[in-house]
Every structure is written in C-alpha cells, then in structure tokens.
Amino acid sequence: MSFGISNFLDSLKSAFLYAPVTLKLTFITFVISLILGTIVATVRYYKIPVLSQFFSVFVTVYMGLPTMVALILYNLIFMTFYNDVAKALNINIPITDINPIIIGYFTLILGTTCSISESVRGAFRGISKIQYEAGYSIGLSKVKTLTRIIYPQMVPILLPGLQNSLIGLLKASNLVSAIAVVEIMTGALLPSLLYYSYLEGYVAAALVYWLIGAFIELLAYFAEKNSGKYLKKGTV
C-alpha cells in the first residue's frame, strides 16, 4: 500500500462533485436551526410557562446525546416503523425511494437548534435591561423591541459562536455517511473502492472540508468586521 497521486486526484474530483450535498445540508440546517434556536431561547428568556420548562429539560438532556448515536437511532426507528406508518397514512412511496438524507436533516437540525439556542440565551444575557426599556419607552411593542432592538444587537455577540456552530455543523454533516448518504467523504471514497486504497480518498475529503471551513472563517471575518461597528469607540 502506498499513496497514489492519480488515485488522489480522482478522489479529489469526486469529493468536489459531492461537495454541494454537504454544503446544502450544512447551510439549510444552519438557517433553520438559527431560527428555531432563537425561538427556543426567546421562549426560555421570557419564561413562557410549560414551554420554557419543556425546552429547558429537553435541551439539557439532548445535549448529552452524541450526533452519531442520534443519527443511528433515528435511522433505525425510521427503517423499523416506516412501512407501518406509511400503510396507516396511505403513503405509497416504498422506503427504498426515500433519500436517507431527510434523517440527516432531522438529526442535525434538532442538535444544532439546541446548541444555537444556548448561544442565543447567552447573547440575551449580554444585552442590558435598559435597551428593552428604551424600546418600550418610545412606544415599541414587545415583538418590535425584540426584532428591531434586541436581535440586531445580538449579532456581534453571537457571531463567534455561530461561526463555531457552522463549522461544527459542516463537520457533523460528515456523519450522515453512516446512514448511506453520499457526501464529501463517501464521494471521495468512490474511486478508492475501485483501487482498494483508501488513504487517498480520506485525504482528498479532508482537503475539501478544510477548504470549505476556511471559506466559512473568511465569511465570518467579514461579517464580524461589519456588524460590530457600533461597539467600537473613537470617531467614525
């Protein structure tokens, strides 16, 4: 066994070919989780009865569950119960026609929502009470005070955490390879399967992930530069 350059280039090409699968999974999950996570955090911040207690227990417990375990469990539950549920609901799509990536979406959204909700809760703590009062005092409603005053002020506080979440999500999306979704890593391995030589595939996959990760960091850098203007002292 050794490292074959041409195998490696084949793997790299194949990895890039499947990069959109990973990118789509990462970004769609991120956007949905950001919205849901903000809602969960807001419900908990305002201590809305029943819901806030439920979320607080759920998030705490759920953060103890590794993504891989959740993924395998949900996949298994899906495989086990799909036929019965589909029959009961008169769905005629055979299980083989369903892309397992939906399990991936479900798992990643649930996990990321929990972790982002914790970041947003932290950001709530970073905003002083007087900002709410100032909003109320000029006659803004509660919702408007949130959307126009509080959430925008959270952006620079949240950015570093969100950048971590996004890169974490990019890496976690790799786990859907365990439920037969072809993404960057499994894509990179396709040529390897022909040659029975895997190292090239994994190195190629690593490179592509690394590149996307660097791109996200670049994006976050510019976002941070632009969003935190109001925090800086000195003249404009």
Binding site: K171, S177, Y198
Partner: peptide, 22 residues
C-alpha cells in the same frame, strides 16, 4: 490547528488508521 479544527474527526481517524501504517 486549522486542519484539526476544519476537518471532521471521522476523516482524521480514518487518515490515522490508513495513513500511519503507510
């Protein structure tokens, strides 16, 4: 550090598993 933080652990494990013996 950038490599370790930017690539999935599963991929890193696989590279260690196949790469170190080579």
């Amino acid at each position: 550090i950038s490599f370790m933080r930017g690539t999935p652990l599963l991929v890193q494990m696989m590279i260690a598993f196949y790469g170190i013996p080579i």
